[in-house]
Structures are given as C-alpha cells and as structure tokens.
Design a protein around this nucleic acid. Sequence first.
DNA 1: GTGAAAGCGCTAACAT
DNA 2: ATGTTAGCGCTTTCAC
Lengths: 361, 361
Amino acid sequence: MNATMHDVARVAGVSIKTVSNVINDYPHVRSATRDRVLTAIKELGYQPNLSARGLRSGKTGVIGLAIPSVREAYFAELADSIIRAAEKRGLGVVVDQTNQVRQHELDVVAGRRLRLTDGIVFSPVTIDESDAALLNVPFPLVILGESIFGGPTDHVTMHNVSSAKAAVEHLLSLGRRRIAVIGADDDEEANAFGSATLRVRGYHQALQAAGIPADPALVRPAGLWHHDTGAAATRSLIASGIPFDGLFALNDSLAIGALRALGEAGVRVPGDVAVIGFDNIDGTKYSIPSLSSVDPGREEIAEIAVEMLVERIGEKGERMPPRRIKPDFRIVGRESTGFPYVADVTDTDGIDESAAVPATA
Amino acid sequence: MNATMHDVARVAGVSIKTVSNVINDYPHVRSATRDRVLTAIKELGYQPNLSARGLRSGKTGVIGLAIPSVREAYFAELADSIIRAAEKRGLGVVVDQTNQVRQHELDVVAGRRLRLTDGIVFSPVTIDESDAALLNVPFPLVILGESIFGGPTDHVTMHNVSSAKAAVEHLLSLGRRRIAVIGADDDEEANAFGSATLRVRGYHQALQAAGIPADPALVRPAGLWHHDTGAAATRSLIASGIPFDGLFALNDSLAIGALRALGEAGVRVPGDVAVIGFDNIDGTKYSIPSLSSVDPGREEIAEIAVEMLVERIGEKGERMPPRRIKPDFRIVGRESTGFPYVADVTDTDGIDESAAVPATA
DNA sequence: GTGAAAGCGCTAACAT
DNA sequence: ATGTTAGCGCTTTCAC
C-alpha cells in the first residue's frame, strides 16, 4: 500500500510532526533534518493523502464549476480558462453540467452537488432575481454571467446591455437600419435578468438612440442557443418575408447557424445582411465569412472569478461584502460586417489580431 | 458549522452506527428507526462529509479526466460524454488539461495530478509504446484514443487505421484520385502509435488497395490540430501548385480550417476538391459546406471507458486482465463530399439524421 | 527544533 | 436491530 507519514517518519528517524513540517514548508526545520525527510519521501514514493488532509483542514484543494454544458463552445472556452486559472493556484476543478435544468441548478446552490469542493463557480441560467434568497449559501460561491440584483454573493458579470448596444451600433454604423435579433426569450416568463433579456434591451437602446422604430417582427426567439436553433430561427425569419439588412445573434453559435441559413437562401453576408454574434468564440475566425462578435472578456472573467473564490475560501473570506465586477468588452469586426479577414498565427498565447472596433462602454 | 453524524444520532435518539446504516442503505434497520433518522437528517440539513468518508473508505466518488484541452471541440464533446456517463453512476469528474505537454502527461501516469480521485480516464498524446512500462500504475487507469501495444492497462481506442482507410475510400468512391492529407506528423520522431501515424497509415492502405501510387507531396503536416493550422496547411498545399481533388483532414478542426482556406482560394467544395474530416464534431453540420466526417463512436467510447474504470475501482478490479475495446465507427456523408444537406431538428437526444455511408470495418 | 497525542467525521468489526 | 469503539492519515496544540 501507499506510504504514510508514519512510514516516512520511521525511515527518516524523526517524528511524524517533523515530516508534516517539511511537507508544509514550516520554516523552523534544520536543513539536515529536512534533507533526511525529503530523502525518505522520495525513497518511499510518499504522497500525502488528500482525503485525510481534507478531513483535517476542511479544504480539499478542488473547486467546482457548474455550467450548462462543456459542449457549448463558449462554456468549453470558459472551462478552459477557469481550469487554467485554478491550476495556477494549485486547485483542481470538477465540472458539473446543469443542462440548464432548474432542479439541477437548485441542487447546486443547495450544495447537493460538487460536495468535495472548497467552493463553486456557477454560471446559472434559470436562477434569477426571485431566487436571490437561495444564494445565501454556507459555502464560497461566485456567480458568473449575469447579475442578480441584491444577491448576497460575488458576481463576475458582463456588460450585457451596453455591449449588445455597441454590437447593434456597429451594425448601424454600417448603414443598416432593419436589424433583426435571434435568440430572444420565447415567452414573457423568462428570466428577467437573463442574458437574452439584457442583450435584447441593449438592442432596443441602440435603436432608440438612433431614432429607429423597433419592429417586434424582427426579434425572434430561438430556444436553446445552438447552431441548429440559430439556423432554424433565421430560416423562419427569411421565410416570413420581412426585410432585414442586419442580424444580431445573441451568441456566436446562433450566428454560425444563421450564416448557414443565410448562405442556403442565397443571402450574401455582409452584402445583403451584416451579421454580428456574441462571445467571440474560437470558431468566429473560421466560419465563412468570418464572424464579427462581442468579446465579453472571458479570460478576465475566469481569472477574476477564481481569484474571488480563492479569497472567499481563505481566512477572511467570510467577512467580505459581496462584490460585483464587470470586465471590459470590445467589439471585434470580421468579414461578416465588412472587415477584412485576418489569418492569425497559431495563437497559443491568445493574441488576437482581428480588428478591434472602438466600443462605447 | 455543519451537522455531523453525531448530531443526527443525538437528535434522532439513536447511535451513530444506526445513522450510518440508514445513510448507506444497510438493510437491517427498523423502518420506524429509519424514519426518525431521516427526519433528523432533514431537520439538521445534514450532509455527509466526503473527505471523512473518503479517508475511511479509500474512495472519493470522483474520477479524473486528463485530456489535451477542453477547448478543442472533440475533447469538449468527449468531456461532456464522460461527465454524463460518470454522473449516471454518481461520480464527479475533475478535468485536467495536459496541453499535450509530455511532462504533464508523465505527471498524470505518475499519479502526481488528480490525486483526490478513485481512478483516471486519460487521453494521452505524447505517451507511446516506449512508455508502456510507465503505465504500470497503482491506481485504476483507462487509456483513450490509441492503443499502446502490450500496455498493462485497459484501453478504449478507435479504429484509427481502418476508419481512415474507409474515409479515403469514400473519397475514392467519388472518383477522386489525387487525395491530400493534412495533419500528418511533422517528423519521424513522432509517436508511432499516435492518431496521426495510424490515420495516415489507413490513408496509404486505401490508396494501395485502389492501386494508386502515393505522392509524398500530398501528405502535409500541420502541427497542432486546430482551425488555424488546418487553414495554414491547406494554403501551403494550394500554393505549392500540386494538384489535388480530394482532401482528408485528420480531424474536423483541421478540416474546417481547410474549408476556409479553400474558399479563400476560390476552390469549390466538393466540385473541385471533396473534403472529409475525422471526429464528427457538432460543427461539421454547420460549416459551409457541411463537412463529411468519420464518426469514431465518441458516446460509446465514453460510456465504455467509465464503465471499465468503475469496474477497476471495484472489488475485483485488481485482478482483471487488461482489456482493449474498439467501438464501431461509421462514415458520415455531408455536402463536402457531395451529399445533400440535412437540417437536423434540435438533436437533444443525439439522433443524427445525416447520411450514413456503409463503411468497411 | 522536534516529539507526543488529540481529534477531524466517518465506516465497519465486534458486541449485545 | 442497534450500540460501542478503533482507526483511516493528517494537522496542530502543547510540551520539551
């Protein structure tokens, strides 16, 4: 079986306490003693038992990430960023997929999932303002993606309204006047603080500011935000015969589906219809045409979320007031709104050479 | 603080053992007693401490998944499938990204990562036959994605050679004779049992069977298998002036990048060049044109991998001989090889209505 | 600077 | 059918 601290202590000829001191970098250990312990550790292939450490210390070194699905490009990229941010701090990440199911999301905030974790980063879909009370949880929790007004927890959210407004203004700046939206909520019951509602609000604000009357027929629901629903919503829009010269997809998956549907119908992009999405996922650079998008600052969101969670987990975490942070966003212009294509070098370092459009924040 | 079993026992007026019996569904408990305990549990909001249970039982209820990156579409979908399969069995999944770094992969098999887990599902890139000895690990391990000959662990692999052969035969059946490959290994030092080597072997087998001489100039390396590298390799291929009428991309991300490069160059797909990828990721249905691909049976791979791991973790897992399983594959024909586009309904149930081409296995 | 010993919350052998 | 108790491997207080 695996070696324990006792084994190490015996081999090194010291007590278990000394072994513990060495492992935890306790300063007051004579270096000769330390060396003997380290040698014994290597010799035995000793590795601390994390369950025991967790039991004793109350910490596991693992955080939870609850998202709708890793399969969706935006969340895959978010998970990647969260995992990297956690790893920098020596933390593991266990991923829980809620599939946008409310009961599942309720289980997350009730602590009925992700139980071997020190805290949770949670990107909810069905939890909204009316659930603020539920968020008063006895474990460290950071909410992502939308702001629950008055909620008791830390939030890292995005400028949903103003960035959507900027996206639409980008289309307006190209002279487009009949701008459609796909991905709106299906019904009035929808989460009033959900991304869809907020982004549609930004859309309306942009139109209003430009003095363009809103046409409800241009605002289309799409169910889940996938390629297929985006394509279906766009086909329905085209079939309706309502003219439009701009299209704002509430996320990039929808937009890529829309490009497909527009292409099938012989609608030229951006000639006939200029298209912009939201999230700036990797795939935006390789669609045909490449897709303009809103970059919500995913990397920064992940970094801040993990940092906040780590602070909460720490000593004084209990006593901090809830914080709310919104990273900056930017509009990224690509071919679908008339910008030239930029082939990027393998951007392992995350450098994005696409055109950045000055954005009103 | 959180309630413990002792608290529950006190409130229910029983001993801690009885509480444990109730929680673990031990059969010999009077139902009246059970009810009292359950009431106390609910009243106190008791939740078992998993660190303690893990320390005692030696199990954590969490498995590890080590993959190159969740951000790559294929691995995002694989992670989704693994997480679902694990959840069915009440297991959590902690995700570790190796980024294809050898040291990181060595750390995985050395058990230096993912330590709070009962076992690991590992999709290696740099580990190959010469490392077989390293796989003699003291914890349950299931290897994905390629077969290490003579390795001591369970493998769930794919028919890399024969499915690649089938993909190329698909192109040949369309009358294509000059078929290029992108994504081959850069050098001779490459992992001889890696997916690239095996798939290129299948390519050569198909050509040979058809009596077509191989042209080394048509086999192009691409570095990492991404959109951008696929586009770059294809641009280089086009610029070389070597004629080709078929393109086999060793995975779908490369293929999508290739479609982009072909489109830029005015090469029609499938008119001038028929294209097929590998993995059958979600994005294949929404590229323009939609992308034919090899479906390696990802769902089944995930399901089997988790099932195998669970068996290894269990009682008699130690004594089982290593197993090797290859799920069936199939060729999925889409527009990029001349099949009609099939708009699928929101396939939440995973039903794929694309044309399935009979494949030689 | 190092050792001895208590105890984190749970499971399971043993006792009743 | 239920209670008592040892101990999983670690951290940490308190002696020395």
